[in-house]
Nucleic acid binder design. Structure first.
Length: 623
DNA sequence: GCCGTTTTCGGCCCGACTGTTTTCAGTCG
């Protein structure tokens, strides 16, 4: 509901009541995280600080613009946001400021919080350093440590000074979060290096990587082994290791040269179930499982379930009772839950869905029969059409839609109608060859599906003025059209949204590629009215892409979930520009799974005939 | 500060490793 300006008087121009700029979800999350950090340093009860961090995380990934929603008087229900934080959001949305936050900032300088980033330095240490020595920045701390001034503090020694200096150095060299493909490369390298370690039965990469979170901080490896010492020894002496953070009988922590921290945990043979659950997380999911275990008289940890006594403490000594399981399915079963896929374990409703028997049947890579978005060297791809097609066929696909860029995207050497006509002839020739191979009974190389075909499409530019890059009669000649927006990204929300809506409603457009236009860690989402986008796409039957390129993953899992809930179809595409990039379909599928997507919502899980019928039907309906 | 298939109050997950404070607090995941 629009707010009425304060009682208007003739001498107050309307601009005087102009509203402050809207804070993004990321900005709100940053403020709440900072409040949580300050409260930690203050020594507030830990649950209060956790509450602020939790709310911040929820807001950061919330699909709706929280400040806008509050300002419009329809605050969304957000898990972890109760009365107190809701009031603060209200204030932030209306005024762009927060008095509570400003008071805390006066008490503790912002530079102080940077100290928390140093490995091994926590809130208690920061408080001590600030109150005893007045240290309020990393630079201050470095000087004090170098001058040997820390050892005067209780609990500090010369060794502690060295470890703080090492922590500061590590912080400065620390790479940011990794994209999924880079994490996968590290995992494969470590798996290779640990192969043949005596006693090692298996190695599982757990943690956020197993949940396929879009960016990964540390790697968590689980080793099921008969000889823990051998694994710990091997991990800590890998040639890629720059620094050993710790090593014990149950775990080893190392930092790889120019790479992430790797924690390797030991699982005793035959008891992997609770270890896998524990170290796959997320933390929020685990908390729910533990509460459920406790309700049933058991304490759950990575080691297994311990029977609780009447005092609520685990039974000890002769009475102690430990239940372990070999598989995760048995762990969930013990809690009277069906197995929950790793990608769902975020406490985003999966426990409730499991209890209600309503877990989704998540889409799998093997459900994909084609790829609706890939390029060749006719525009900005690396390989020629035949080579790309061959790679797609080896990847088990039944079809690809070749979607080179259209003419106005000059930087990608976009094609004009004449070039597209020439390309269509090449595609036809290749398809004729595939057909002949089948007729002659020749098995396609790699043993991939027979009946493989290339469909002809384009990646149609949505121009800055909102028009499309090719006229309708040219578009009508394609098997399928993927439209996307690369230019004029900074236009105001209304104009951007209008451009996308026009493309969605154009009967020749079948898919909107990478709808949010983000590059993870580099470029924010387009400022679109997402409700309007989803509504229009659902109504027009135009599919929204989940682009599997690891630096895009666009739609995000959260938006994909919203889109499907709004009745939209999705396309999971690779956007391959070279043969190796058809593997991006794996990342696209994993994000779709994080978004609770089922195969029935995915157009390229359909056969070629069904897909073509869908595209033709769309064009006809538009007339 | 949040939250409810026991609870609107009283909980809130649990353990490994480190350093050093010879019995534990701090940090981390």
């Amino acid at each position: 509901m629009p707010r009425r300006p304060p009682t208007a008087t003739a001498d107050v121009p309307s601009t005087a009541v102009e509203e402050p700029p809207l804070l993004s979800n990321a900005e709100i999350a940053r403020i709440l995280h900072e409040i949580g950090d300050i409260l930690e340093v203050k020594g507030e009860v830990v649950y209060k600080t956790v509450a602020y961090h939790r709310a911040a995380d929820e807001i950061a990934r919330h699909p709706v613009e929280v400040a806008r929603a509050y300002r419009e008087g329809r605050p969304p229900t957000i898990p972890g946001v109760g009365k107190a934080i809701a009031e603060k959001l209200e204030e932030l949305a209306r005024t762009g400021r927060l008095a509570y936050y400003e008071r805390l900032r006066e008490e503790f300088p912002a530079s102080l919080l940077a100290l928390l980033e140093i490995p091994g330095v926590g809130p208690k240490t920061v408080k001590l350093l600030y109150e005893q020595l007045g240290i309020d920045s990393i630079e201050d701390l470095r000087r004090a440590a170098e001058a040997g001034r820390l050892r005067s503090l209780r609990g500090f020694s010369a060794k502690a000074e060295q470890s703080i200096l090492a922590g500061i150095a590590a912080l400065e060299r620390r790479p940011g979060r990794m994209l999924l493909d880079r994490a996968a490369t590290h995992v494969a390298a470590i798996e290779g290096a640990l192969a043949g370690t005596p006693g090692l039965r298996r190695l599982v990469a757990a943690g956020s990587y197993r949940r396929r979170v879009e960016t990964i901080g540390d790697l968590d490896l689980l080793a099921e082994t008969d000889e823990p010492e051998a694994v710990v020894e091997r991990v800590t002496t890998l040639p890629e290791v720059e620094r050993v953070l710790g090593r014990g009988s149950h775990k080893a922590s190392v930092v790889l040269r120019g790479g992430p921290q790797v924690d390797c945990m030991i699982m005793p043979p035959g008891a992997a179930g609770t270890y896998l659950v524990h170290f796959t997380g997320s933390k929020a999911h685990n908390v729910r499982l533990r509460a459920r275990a406790r309700d049933r008289g058991w304490s759950l940890s990575e080691h297994g379930f311990l029977r609780l006594g009447p005092d609520g403490e685990p039974l000890a000594g002769a009475e102690a009772e430990l239940r372990t399981f070999a598989t995760e399915a048995e762990v969930y079963g013990f809690l009277e839950l069906p197995y929950i896929e790793p990608e769902l374990r975020e406490d985003r409703g999966e426990i409730e869905a499991a209890l209600a028997g309503r877990l989704p049947r998540l889409v799998e890579r093997s459900d994909l029969r084609g790829d609706l978005h890939c390029h060749s060297d006719w525009s900005d791809g690396v390989h020629d059409i035949a080579t790309m097609a061959e790679a797609a066929r080896r990847a088990g696909l039944e079809y690809i839609v070749l979607t080179d860029h259209t003419v106005s995207l000059a930087i990608a050497r976009g094609l004009d109608p004449a070039r597209f006509a020439a390309q269509r002839a090449v595609v036809a020739e290749l398809n004729a060859r595939y057909e002949a191979e089948e007729r002659d009974g020749r098995i396609p190389p790699g043993g991939s599906p027979a009946g493989f075909r290339i469909l002809h499409g384009c990646e149609l530019e949505i121009r800055a003025d909102g028009s499309l890059d090719l006229p309708g009669e040219v578009l009508a000649g394609f098997d399928l059209v993927v439209a996307s927006l690369h230019v004029g990204r900074r236009q105001p929300r209304e104009r951007l949204t209008a451009r996308v809506l026009a493309a969605i409603r154009n009967p020749h457009v079948d898919v909107i590629a990478h709808p949010a236009g983000r590059i993870i860690g580099e470029r924010d989402d387009l400022d679109l009215d997402w409700d309007a986008v989803f509504e229009a796409a659902a109504e027009a039957g135009t599919a929204l892409e989940l682009n599997g390129s690891p630096h895009r993953l666009d739609l995000s899992a959260e938006r994909a979930r919203q889109a499907v809930a709004a009745g939209c179809l999705l396309a999971i595409d690779s956007d391959a520009h070279r043969t190796t990039e058809f593997s991006h379909l794996d990342w696209g599928v994993s994000q779709a799974r994080r978004g609770w997507v089922e195969a029935t919502s995915v157009v390229n899980a359909r056969s070629r005939a069904e897909l073509l019928a869908w595209a033709a039907g769309k064009a006809d309906r538009g007339g």
